[in-house]
């Protein structure tokens, strides 16, 4: 089992750092899955996260100049590691002006992901900073626990409003209530609502658009015959939503959510090279 990778391009490095920062805001520990083509950050320890789970996927070719991976065995050419993303975030934080960043899986006394940052210096040789991030290697028999979650059979799928506005509103609502109701319909309307003894606040978003999903039988029949105006809703922990929005440092290319009435909200945030899915269950 081997892993070595290198990033030389500063823009790629900064983009990668931003992604790690977002992951670090959502999960205290998570799984890093390495395959030949992709990296995945997975959070599925549901009980510990109040039921929320995360699946983030990136194509290694968009970030790394060198990427060599050998999995546990030929037919299982993957590596699953458990780590604290905050460590990785810290290691990359001070690498903003690096000449190169190398990553390597090592096992001197315990498995570590060694991040070596080569920094410019006034002297003849570069400055090197190494960060040994402790990781746990997940054995193959446990890999099934970390499969990609399927898209739920949702009642409504809708594009999210401008994240900056959504973030401000949710942050204020967080001061007023612990729970928030997200409701949306097939006419591109979404409402965010909180209600307590003291106050009710509802924010109305219009003209958001509903993404077209092809259904399994090849036609978009699920929408026909349904009342386009009727709202599907789910009441969720407002803190989880706020964390998701606070972690977004750059506007995604596409942002949408799928709501299963009173069951779960499934967020999908797509950037050019990375996709993030976040599942927040409804409070019963």
């Amino acid at each position: 089992m081997r892993f070595r990778a290198k990033i030389v391009d500063l823009a790629c490095l900064n983009h990668f750092s931003r992604i790690i920062n977002t992951i670090a805001k959502l999960a205290k520990t998570c799984i890093l899955r390495l395959t030949v083509c992709k990296l995945y950050f997975i959070l599925s320890d549901k009980v510990a996260n109040g039921g929320a789970s995360m699946w983030c996927e990136l194509s290694q070719g968009n970030f790394f100049d060198e990427f060599q991976m050998e999995g546990v065995a030929a037919e299982h050419n993957e590596i699953y590691l458990e780590l604290v993303p905050e460590n990785l975030s810290r290691a990359l934080k001070t690498s903003q002006s690096a000449k190169a960043v190398k990553m390597k899986l090592t096992n001197k006394h315990s498995p570590c992901l060694r991040v070596a940052v080569e920094l410019p210096s006034l002297s003849s040789s570069s400055r090197i900073v190494t960060h040994d991030i402790p990781v746990g290697v997940i054995p193959r028999r446990m890999w099934n626990d970390f499969r990609e979650p399927s898209v739920p059979d949702f009642d409504v799928s809708i594009y999210l409003p401008v994240l900056k506005t959504m973030k401000s509103v949710v942050e204020r609502m967080k001061n007023l209530s612990n729970f928030i109701v997200i409701e949306a319909n097939l006419s591109g309307e979404m409402n965010l609502k909180i209600e307590t003894d003291l106050v009710s606040v509802t924010t109305h978003f219009k003209d958001l658009g509903n993404p077209p999903w092809a259904s399994e039988d090849g036609c978009q029949s699920s929408a026909q015959g349904r009342d386009l105006e009727s709202m599907t809703e789910a009441c969720i922990d407002i803190k989880k939503l706020q964390q998701l929005l606070a972690g977004q440092q750059v506007n995604p290319t596409k942002a949408l959510c799928n709501i299963v009435h009173k069951r779960i909200v499934h967020f999908i945030l797509l950037h050019e090279e990375v996709s993030l899915q976040y599942f927040i269950p409804a409070i019963s």
Partner: peptide, 12 residues
């Protein structure tokens, strides 16, 4: 209202 988005509040 800001940018076309409307928020309604009811405060006791």
């Amino acid at each position: 209202e800001e940018g076309g988005v409307v928020t309604v509040c009811k405060i006791n």
